[in-house]
Amino acid sequence: MSGRSVLDWLLRLALGGAMVYAGWSKLDVQETFARNIANYRLLPAQLNQILAVTLPWVELVAGALLVLGLWTRPAAWIVAALMAAFAIGVGQALARGLDISCGCFGEGTGESLGLQTLGLEAACLAAAIAIAWLAPRRAARAPAA
């Protein structure tokens, strides 16, 4: 197994695992998650409710695909898009001085948003882009027909 394959595998396992955990932890606390989304003060209640019901499943499915190595590139782009959207939400909340909890992992730890949240999302975004970038290289090594 080459160094690049090991890196690809580690990134997929770490990011995919984190996404599966993030999605799973929200499945039983949808009302709490809807309130957490509302606290960002970006969307109307109706959209918060739809996001609270659907977003955990998007995280769960995309994360599982990354862990399993199936449809890796599309799954990585979904995670990258999610992380970019989360970073915008967190960034605007920090800029407005909102004292809210992240809501990243269900009922979570109760910690407030901070630059560390933004840093974590940036790291996840970079990992997702790296996975998507590494995926075509695997295809290049595949034997030609």
């Binding site: 109706q46 409710q49 019901v53 499915v61």
Partner: peptide, 30 residues
């Protein structure tokens, strides 16, 4: 993938014993 995941989320909510109200301006998420 996103469509299937969203469908799963909406279906499990609809089949849940305590479904979260959707499109309710005064419901959770207000």
């Amino acid at each position: 993938i996103v469509a299937v995941a969203c469908a799963l989320g909406l279906a499990t909510n609809a089949l849940s014993s305590k479904p979260m109200p959707l499109l309710d301006p005064k419901g959770p998420g207000a």
